[in-house]
């Protein structure tokens, strides 16, 4: 066991770290803003809004992230409509494909989290809003989404952590993230313990930061219902 192989390759781990802390927030960003309208659609009683979003979340929550990434990366490259059109400039790049599949995946989970929160809204508050003369959109903006989003903070924090850990899958499509760096170091020096231990510690620190951030968010936005 020699951790000198880690110090010799600190640059590789740094590059991987940068990729991870770029890719994950970007995917979360896109996923979050996709999930906002999707969750409202998913919670609606209109079948034309409800069922398409349900199929979307059903597919992305029902299949492993790894399968989705492989489908997007190797699968789509088999079709000439992707390969020979302008689409290819997007799908050629492993990073963009990874970002796309992560965004869609986290969008699906986030949609279901928000949907749950929307459906659990106290009926009285919505009726009160109606009684005040608010239209559906105003209600959504002023009452439904603010309350639902606040209530989603704890479970959304979990989703962020899952996304961070799920992002390790991108190392399988030639993106060098933290796990990718560990895999390269492991395969070059045959030191799985050193390589993956280091990667694990980095993920642990990142998770710790995420937990801290969400604790602050809960304090700020959920203090009124703290017991």
């Amino acid at each position: 066991m020699s951790f000198s192989i880690i110090f010799d390759n600190w640059k590789l781990f740094l590059e991987g770290f940068v990729v991870t802390i770029q890719l994950v927030p970007l995917a979360l960003f896109f996923g979050f803003f996709m999930a906002l309208p999707l969750s409202v659609m998913r919670a609606s009683s209109n079948p034309f809004l409800k069922w398409p979003t349900y199929s979307f979340t059903y597919f992305f929550r029902g299949t492993p992230l790894l399968v989705q990434v492989y489908l997007f990366y190797y699968g789509l490259a088999q079709f000439s409509i992707v390969k020979e059109t302008i689409l290819w400039s997007f799908f050629k790049d492993a990073y963009k494909v990874g970002l796309l599949s992560f965004s869609l995946n986290t969008a699906a989970y986030t949609t279901e989290i928000f949907r749950g929160a929307i459906e659990r809204l106290p009926l009285g508050q919505i009726e009160a809003a109606k009684a005040c003369g608010m239209g559906p959109l105003t209600r959504l903006r002023r009452i439904i989404l603010p309350i639902a989003l606040r209530k989603s903070i704890p479970s959304y924090g979990n989703e962020v952590i899952f996304m961070l850990h799920g992002s390790s899958i991108c190392s399988l499509i030639t993106i060098i993230d933290i796990t990718g760096a560990a895999r390269i170091v492991n395969s070059r020096y045959y030191g799985p313990v050193e390589a993956f231990f280091t990667a694990g510690v980095i993920y642990l620190c990142l998770t710790f930061c995420i937990v801290g951030i969400f604790k602050q968010l809960e304090k700020k936005f959920l203090s009124h219902i703290r017991r």
Binding site: Y74, A77, K92, A94, T174, I184
Partner: peptide, 18 residues
């Protein structure tokens, strides 16, 4: 340098033009 876990995956990406 694009590094693949399996030789087969490198072939796929060569054919895909990546």
């Amino acid at each position: 340098i694009k590094r693949y876990g399996k030789q087969d995956e490198a072939y796929l990406d060569m054919k895909a033009g990546r």
